[in-house]
């Protein structure tokens, strides 16, 4: 009997200690969550988080567009346009919303869904076979709601990275860009990558997807131009063998048939022998700067003509 009483007492003590442990555990969680909640209220979630995937990069780009003042010019495109960094352009208030791994149409849908539009929208016409990212459009069409809590580890890393690599302006890098363009083109041998890319770009017939997307681009152009914005399409130069691939040829044919008016196009005049594509598809840094400068010249002409 004594043993049983003792055992039942120790059991109840165990229960009390378990409850205490669980309460403390809950308190620990609550303290961290509250601290992060307060930090979000105090600092906002405006810190540009480090992008470890292309998806992260996309979210950062789009959140920044919604948060910051409306630019005059936006670039929409895929990873090909993504390489044209904003600081390469002397044009003030230009924002590159190209989505690495995404479609130019996704960007256009999102921009078109915003209450205010930039004056000029430039849409890449190289990669048009990809589907619109419906989840992304849905998320950014209703506004990117401020999260309740920020991510403490990523925020700490973001703050550290921002301190190390503050975003640069064109003026800060102008000298370096001139030096870069003054150098001879890279002699990196990209054959392996180009062959693989060519194989992929010849593998599938993009006709249906491109037709569908071209039609939707036309609809969106009508909508945004009725609201006062102007839309120009542009094609970035491909590596020559890629230019002749099935994918590139079909896309070019369909999009030019859909938009035959030359005034709808931003014509990029550039000496192709100066350009290099490190992986066969994407421009290397020097080439991206050269193309960005050529785009600026074309933009100035287009604006003057208007």
């Amino acid at each position: 009997m004594t043993i049983r009483r003792k055992s039942s007492r120790s059991k109840s003590e165990e229960d009390v200690s378990a409850v205490r442990w669980l309460i403390k555990c809950g308190a620990g969680a609550a303290i961290v969550l509250t601290a992060c909640g307060f930090a979000t209220v105090r600092f906002g979630s405006g810190l540009q988080m480090p992008a470890t995937t292309t998806r992260d990069g996309t979210l950062i780009t789009l959140s920044r567009y919604l948060r910051e003042p409306l630019p005059d010019v936006v670039l929409l495109g895929s990873s090909i346009t993504f390489r044209l960094k904003e600081e390469y352009f002397a044009t003030p208030k230009l924002r590159n919303l190209a989505l690495a791994g995404g479609s130019p149409l996704t960007g256009l849908e999102i921009v078109a869904s915003q209450p205010q539009l930039p004056g000029l929208i430039l849409v890449e016409a190289n990669v048009l076979a990809r589907q619109t990212d419906a989840a992304l459009v849905e998320r950014y069409s209703r506004g990117d709601a401020e999260p309740l809590f920020f991510r403490p580890v990523r925020a700490a890393v973001a703050a550290y990275e921002q301190q190390l690599h503050t975003p640069l302006t064109h003026e800060q890098v102008a000298l370096e860009l001139r030096r870069l363009v003054g150098q001879p083109p890279s002699d990196f041998d990209n054959r392996i990558y180009a062959d693989r890319a060519l194989q992929q770009l010849n593998a599938e017939d993009p006709t249906d997807a491109v037709r569908l997307n071209a039609k939707r681009i036309g609809e969106l152009i009508r909508i945004v131009e009725q609201r006062g914005a102007r839309v120009l399409l542009f094609e970035l130069p491909y590596f020559e063998p890629i230019e002749g691939s099935r994918h590139a040829a079909i896309t070019r044919e369909i999009i030019h048939a859909a938009f035959p008016d030359s005034n709808r196009w931003l014509s990029i005049e550039v000496n192709r022998s100066e350009l290099r594509w490190a992986d066969g598809v994407h421009l290397d840094e020097r080439s991206a700067v050269i193309v960005a400068q050529a785009m600026e010249r074309a933009l100035a002409l287009a604006r003057a003509a208007q």
């Binding site: 555990c25 809950g26 308190a27 620990g28 969680a29 609550a30 961290v32």
Partner: peptide
Amino acid sequence: EPYLYGAMAAL
């Protein structure tokens, strides 16, 4: 210990 587990849950 319990606070640490709680912090892990939050994290």
